[in-house]
Amino acid sequence: MLPADSNAPGGAPGADDPHPIAQLGITGAELESSLTRRVDWQQLVGALPHLVWVARPDGYHEYFNQQWFDYTGLTLAESLGDGWNPPFHPDERPLARRLWDEATLTGEPYEIEYRLRRHDGVYRWMLGRAVPLRDESGTLLKWFGTCTDIEELKVALDDAAELRHELERRATRDSLTGLANRELLFEQMEHKLSQRRRTGMAVVYMDLDWFKEINDRLGHSAGDRLLAFIGERLRDTVRQGDIAARIGGDEFVVVGEAQDHEEAERFAQRVVEGVRGRLSVSGESVEVAASVGVTYVDAADTRSADTVLAHADARMYEEKRRR
Rank of each mutant, 00 (worst) to 15 (best):
residue 6 S to E: 15
residue 9 P to R: 15
residue 11 G to P: 14
residue 12 A to R: 14
residue 16 D to A: 14
residue 20 P to Q: 12
residue 26 I to M: 10
residue 30 E to Q: 15
residue 39 V to E: 15
residue 39 V to N: 15
residue 41 W to P: 08
residue 43 Q to N: 15
residue 45 V to W: 03
residue 51 L to H: 08
residue 51 L to I: 06
residue 52 V to K: 06
residue 55 A to P: 01
residue 57 P to R: 01
residue 60 Y to P: 00
residue 62 E to S: 09
residue 63 Y to F: 13
residue 65 N to S: 11
residue 69 F to D: 12
residue 70 D to G: 08
residue 73 G to D: 09
residue 78 E to Y: 11
residue 79 S to P: 07
residue 80 L to N: 06
residue 80 L to H: 10
residue 91 D to P: 10
residue 94 P to S: 11
residue 96 A to T: 01
residue 100 W to L: 08
residue 102 E to L: 05
residue 104 T to L: 02
residue 105 L to C: 11
residue 109 P to A: 02
residue 115 R to P: 04
residue 125 W to D: 02
residue 130 A to C: 03
residue 139 T to K: 15
residue 140 L to G: 08
residue 143 W to F: 03
residue 153 L to M: 13
residue 156 A to Y: 08
residue 159 D to S: 11
residue 162 E to T: 07
residue 170 R to C: 11
residue 170 R to D: 11
residue 175 S to Y: 09
residue 175 S to Q: 14
residue 179 L to F: 03
residue 180 A to Y: 07
residue 185 L to N: 04
residue 188 Q to R: 14
residue 189 M to N: 04
residue 191 H to T: 13
residue 199 T to S: 13
residue 203 V to Q: 00
residue 208 L to I: 05
residue 210 W to K: 11
residue 212 K to F: 13
residue 213 E to S: 14
residue 223 G to F: 06
residue 225 R to C: 03
residue 226 L to N: 06
residue 229 F to W: 14
residue 230 I to L: 04
residue 237 T to R: 13
residue 238 V to Y: 09
residue 240 Q to M: 10
residue 246 R to S: 04
residue 247 I to V: 09
residue 249 G to E: 05
residue 251 E to F: 06
residue 253 V to W: 00
residue 253 V to T: 00
residue 256 G to I: 00
residue 261 H to W: 09
residue 263 E to C: 07
residue 267 F to M: 10
residue 273 E to D: 12
residue 281 V to L: 07
residue 282 S to Y: 04
residue 283 G to A: 07
residue 286 V to W: 01
residue 288 V to T: 03
residue 294 V to T: 07
residue 299 A to Q: 11
residue 299 A to P: 10
residue 300 A to C: 06
residue 302 T to Y: 08
residue 307 T to H: 08
residue 310 A to F: 01
residue 310 A to Y: 00
residue 314 A to K: 03
